[in-house]
């Protein structure tokens, strides 16, 4: 039990340390929400999707690692990248229907943000799973926290960066 608590503590502490960047960025970007409410509207959906995909990939990767099946891990990585191309337009459409805003701009922000984040986080997940095993840690405890926190930070940063260029 102590070992489980220590493992969970270490991964959650790392997650909170990483996620604090997301939180502080959001706290400091409060005034931008007022100017572009569609960004506040789309951000939870983008973060949720990216986190979901990262978690599913992480969960499949750890299972593949436990089963010793590298082919399954590669297939999961490819599927994750393709999902990040297909789903963002649906998110932009849902947000456009609920909050308005320019659909083309929202779709461009969503697709480019998710592609940028996926290109970093997807290979990172595989690396974390492999590194956890080498370090004698259970990847089920380590990978979900690290991959979702990195996804969240990058999603916030890339959303505002890309929106700053695209949204007039």
């Amino acid at each position: 039990m102590i070992r489980e608590i220590v493992a969970a503590l270490s991964s959650l502490a790392a997650l909170v340390a990483l996620e604090s960047g997301t939180g502080v960025a959001l706290e400091l970007l409060k005034h931008k929400w007022a100017q572009h409410p569609e960004l506040l509207a789309i951000l939870p959906a983008l973060m949720d999707f990216r986190g979901n995909v990262a978690l599913a990939h992480s969960s499949r990767a750890t299972t593949a690692q436990h089963l010793g099946d590298d082919r399954a891990m590669v297939d999961s990585t490819v599927a994750t990248m393709i999902a990040c191309l297909i789903v963002p337009p649906f998110i932009a459409f849902a947000v456009h229907e609920m909050y308005g805003g320019n659909l083309e701009e929202l779709a461009a922000v969503a697709v480019l943000t998710m592609l940028a984040v996926a290109s970093v986080v997807t290979p990172f997940t595989v690396a974390v799973v492999k590194a956890s095993v080498r370090l004698g840690l259970d990847p089920d405890h380590v990978a979900p926290a690290l991959t979702t926190s990195l996804s969240d930070i990058l999603t916030v940063v890339f959303t505002f960066l890309i929106a700053g260029v695209i949204i007039s």
Partner: peptide, 26 residues
Amino acid sequence: GLAALLPVMMAAIGAAASAYGSRLST
């Protein structure tokens, strides 16, 4: 402080429950 707290709580609670679910699945 709420805006700084909210995404961290969302991520940490989701990650903790998912880690538990992932272990159960494995």
